[in-house]
Simulated assay, not measured.
Amino acid sequence: MRKLLVGLLCMTVGCATTATSTTPSAPSSSGAPEASAKTEVKDPVSLDTLKAEIQKARESKDWPRLQSLARELAQREPENGEALAYAGMASIMLGQKEEGIAELEKSVTVKDSAPIRYILASVLRGEDQPQQALEHLERAVALDEEAVQAWYDLALLRAQVGKIDDAFAAADRVKALAPEAPQAEALFMFLSQWHAAMRVPPEAAAHNAQGSKLATEGHVEEAITEFEAALKLAADYADAHYNLALLLSRKGEKPRAEQEYRKAIPGFHEREKLLRADAQNNLAFLMVERGVKTEEPVTLVRAAIAVRGERASYLDTLARACDARKDKECAVEAFRKLLASSAKLPFDVKTHAEQRLQALAP
C-alpha cells in the first residue's frame, strides 16, 4: 500500500529518480569504502489503479488531482479520449479555460462524444465565441438526437447568431421530445419575442427590452415611457403594443389598454402567434370585464385556444364570455374544464368558477 501511495504521489508532484544517502556508509570489513546503494526505481502505477484514482478524484471534485492523473493517463494512452476529457473538464474547473478547451477539443477528435461537445459549446458560449459553440452543439445533436437540453440550447444559440428559422426548428424538436415540459413553451415565447425584435430598428427593440426589465422590477411608469419610446420608433411594433397594454390594464386604464391590444394583434407575425394568442385572450377578458356581450370575446379567446390549447387563463376567459352571452352549455363546459385543470388557480378565479357552475348547473 505504501508503495502504491508513493507511486501516486510521484505521479502527482514528481519524485527524483536517484538519491544518495546522507549518512556515511560504514567501512567494509576489508577497509575499502562501500559503493553507494542504488536507488530503487518505483514501478509505474497500473492503469487499472490509475483509472480508479481518476474516478475517485472526479467524484470528490478534487480538480487539481483529477487534472494531474487524467493527463498522466492521456500520456500513457494517447487514444484515450475519456482521459483527455477529464483533464479538460478539470482544467476548466480550475479556471484554465484555454487549456481545458484545447484538451476537450482534442478528446472529441480521438473519440467523439455528444456530452463533451455540449460541454465545449457551453464553455465557448461563456467565452463569447457563439459560432464555435454552435458547431459543437450542431455536432452534439447529430450524435444524440434525443438530447433535449442540447436542442434547447441550440435553439437559443441559433437565434443568437441570426438563424431564427433554424432556431424555431430546434424548438420544434424540443417540443416533440418533451411536449409537457413548461420550458418548451417558454422557449417558443422567447423566440417569438426575439423574432419580433429582429423586425424593428435596434433602438426600438432596446427600448422595449428596457421597458420589460423595468416592469419586472416594478417600475411601471418608467416602463410605460420605454414602451412608448419604442413605438415612436416603430409604430407597428406589436410586442411593444402588447407590453404597453399589460401595464395600462394593471393601472386600471382599461379603454386605452384595449386599444393597444387591438393594435398589437394584427401586427404579430405568424412566428409570433403565441404572443398574438395571449393578446387575443387578454383583449377578450377586458371586453367581458366592461360588460361586452357580443360574440367577439368568444371568437378571440377561441382563436387563442386554437394556438396554445386550453390553458387555465383561456378557459376562465371563455367561460366568462359564454356566461355573459347566456350560452349556458359553453359556459358550463368551460367552467368544468377550468376546475378540472391541473393548474393552481388563483382563489378568486376558483371561487368564481365554483359559484357560477353551481348557479348554472346545480
Rank of each mutant, 00 (worst) to 15 (best):
I224V: 15
L84R: 12
L318T: 09
A178N: 10
R2A: 11
Q183T: 14
A32D: 15
V45L: 11
S341A: 11
A196G: 09
I119N: 12
Q183M: 14
S68M: 03
A178Y: 06
R71S: 09
Y237R: 03
A206S: 13
A223N: 05
A196K: 00
L283W: 11
Q210S: 03
A204D: 08
E103P: 02
V301T: 09
V161W: 04
A196L: 01
V292H: 12
V41T: 10
E99D: 09
L248N: 07
E295W: 08
S25M: 15
R58F: 13
F268D: 03
R271F: 08
A279L: 03
L300T: 11
T216N: 10
L357Y: 07
E272N: 00
A223I: 08
M93R: 12
A361M: 07
A353E: 06
K350Y: 01
K328M: 09
D128W: 10
G14D: 00
K175Y: 09
A170E: 02
L66W: 00
P115K: 04
H207E: 08
I164C: 02
V292C: 07
R2F: 11
H241T: 01
L69M: 00
L137C: 01
T109A: 11
T17N: 13
A205G: 04
Q132C: 04
E145N: 13
K3D: 13
I224E: 12
A306Q: 05
R320W: 11
